[in-house]
Amino acid sequence: MEKSELIGQTLIYEYDNGESYKLEFEESTLVWTCLAGVAKGHSGIEKYDFVEVASEIIFISWLEQSREVVSIVFNLNTMKVFCSYVYEINKHQWKGKIISFKRSKG
């Protein structure tokens, strides 16, 4: 998968702790929205980096305007998600599942 294939796609995922997010991919930015959990209703527009580490396994990372670092591996084969999230000196790791990965038809 090339980064260009993400443009116009929407990915929804949920961590084991019940937090869920929606990512909407544009050419150089993504829009994230928290759908459930302590940050419900919060969203942002961030520049992101992308690499396909293996077939249908993608690594995406971004630095939020609040200086939070988010690094996520999405395994589209197994529909699993793994995240490392760093804010200031606190690091968190979460895992969960991909709920949907849809391509917008334009």
Rank of each mutant, 00 (worst) to 15 (best):
M1I: 09
K3P: 04
E5W: 09
I7F: 01
G8L: 08
G8M: 03
Q9V: 04
T10P: 01
I12P: 00
Y13V: 03
Y13L: 11
D16T: 11
E19F: 10
Y21S: 09
K22V: 01
K22H: 01
K22Q: 15
L23Q: 05
E24A: 01
E24P: 00
E27I: 00
S28T: 09
S28M: 04
L30A: 03
L30C: 01
V31D: 09
W32F: 15
L35G: 10
A39S: 12
K40E: 15
S43F: 09
I45E: 15
E46I: 06
E46K: 10
K47D: 12
K47M: 05
F50A: 04
F50V: 00
F50R: 04
E52S: 12
A54T: 05
S55R: 08
I57C: 07
I60P: 00
W62V: 03
W62H: 14
E64S: 04
E64H: 00
Q65D: 14
R67W: 11
R67G: 06
E68A: 13
E68Q: 13
V69C: 07
V69W: 05
V70D: 05
S71A: 11
S71Q: 15
V73Q: 10
V73S: 04
N75A: 05
T78Q: 12
M79H: 12
V81F: 10
V81D: 10
F82K: 12
C83P: 02
Y85G: 03
V86A: 13
V86Q: 14
E88Y: 07
E88S: 14
I89D: 15
N90Q: 12
K91R: 09
H92C: 05
W94H: 14
I99L: 13
I99S: 01
I99P: 00
K102R: 01
K102W: 00
K105F: 11
G106I: 02
